[in-house]
Simulated assay, not measured.
Amino acid sequence: MAPPAPKEEPEDESWLATYADAITLLMAFFVLLVAVSKVDLALYEEVAEGINEQVNKKERKAPTQELKDDAAEIVQEMTDGKVLKLGVDDSGIVLEFDSSTFFKPGTAQVIDAAYPIIASLAELVNSPQYEKFNMDIEGHTDDDPISTLQFPSNWVLGASRSASVLQIMNENGVKVDRMRVLSYAATRPKAPNRMEDGTPIPENKAMNRRVVLRIHQKPFEYSPPKYVPVTSIARDYDPNQSNAAPADGATPETTTGETTPTAASEPAPAQ
């Protein structure tokens, strides 16, 4: 009589629980990385373009790359590449105007020769394929102080020069809700304005006087702040009844302090 066949032991699958936990933690880790990371849109488009070329075996230009190529043609045809520089950053393309060439010294007045260049850029970004792009127009200055009736500070000068470029682009069809004016004055120099001993560096100062046009696909988001009505605070305060019970269940500290009438009497900020 043949001996009975040995019973097969059930396979131990307890490792699956540990494996599933590890995969879940790893996925959560990568989700966290994506959530806190700064997305480089220009690099993303380059990678997507390369993948598309390898998979579909055909060339396809990303919108940012196409815009850069079209802008490069304007820079090459209308300037020497020095007074108007073209580059890229992590959001899109960057056009840098030399203030010494585009503006009259110490003013925000654009010289006549610069109008056609700005108008050509306006015509470019008005093309249907670029209507989703927005623009930040930044004004930068050197550290020489300015104090005139029209420009009491470098902040005002930088903002005024940016606004002059915006106005010309708007006159050539670019909608104002696609543009934003910024001023950095002398806070973001490309190169030091002075040596360590305080000696000015003229070539660096000239480099730092510039207007930067950043063209990107980031939306302009604005959430209006929620204000507490000052009139309701003043209505609950009666200076003739300092010992009166607080209104609406408020504590005595919130109704009898000296700050309430002051807040009510302050004028509203100018718009």
Rank of each mutant, 00 (worst) to 15 (best):
R209Y: 06
K218F: 03
N193T: 03
D238K: 06
P267T: 09
T262A: 05
P261F: 02
D238F: 05
D197E: 06
P261R: 05
V230Y: 01
A245I: 13
N208M: 09
F220D: 04
A234M: 10
T255W: 14
P261M: 03
R194V: 06
E253I: 11
T251R: 09
D248W: 15
K205V: 01
R194D: 07
I215C: 02
A244H: 06
T254F: 14
D197P: 08
R209S: 11
A250Y: 13
R209G: 05
Y237P: 00
T251L: 12
R209P: 02
T255F: 10
E196C: 00
V228S: 05
P202C: 08
S265H: 07
E266T: 09
D238M: 01
P202A: 09
S232W: 12
P224K: 07
D197S: 09
R235E: 12
E266M: 10
V211G: 01
M207S: 05
T254D: 15
V228Q: 05
P224H: 01
D236S: 13
A263D: 09
T260V: 15
K218A: 07
M207T: 10
V230P: 00
P239V: 01
A264Q: 11
M195P: 00
S232E: 15
A234V: 12
V212F: 04
T260M: 09
M207R: 14
D238R: 02
K205R: 15
T255M: 14
P224G: 00
T251M: 08
Y237N: 09
R214M: 01
Y237D: 02
S223Q: 11
M207F: 08
I233A: 13
S223V: 14
T199G: 03
I201R: 05
A250N: 15
A268C: 00
T255P: 00
A264F: 13
V228Y: 11
M207I: 06
P239N: 00
R209H: 07
T199V: 05
D197K: 10
R210D: 02
S242I: 15
P239H: 02
A263W: 12
R194F: 02
A263F: 12
P225N: 02
A268Q: 07
F220L: 13
E221I: 15
A234W: 01
R210P: 03
N240K: 15
T255D: 09
Q241T: 08
P202T: 08
V230W: 01
Q217R: 15
I233V: 11
T255L: 09
I233T: 08
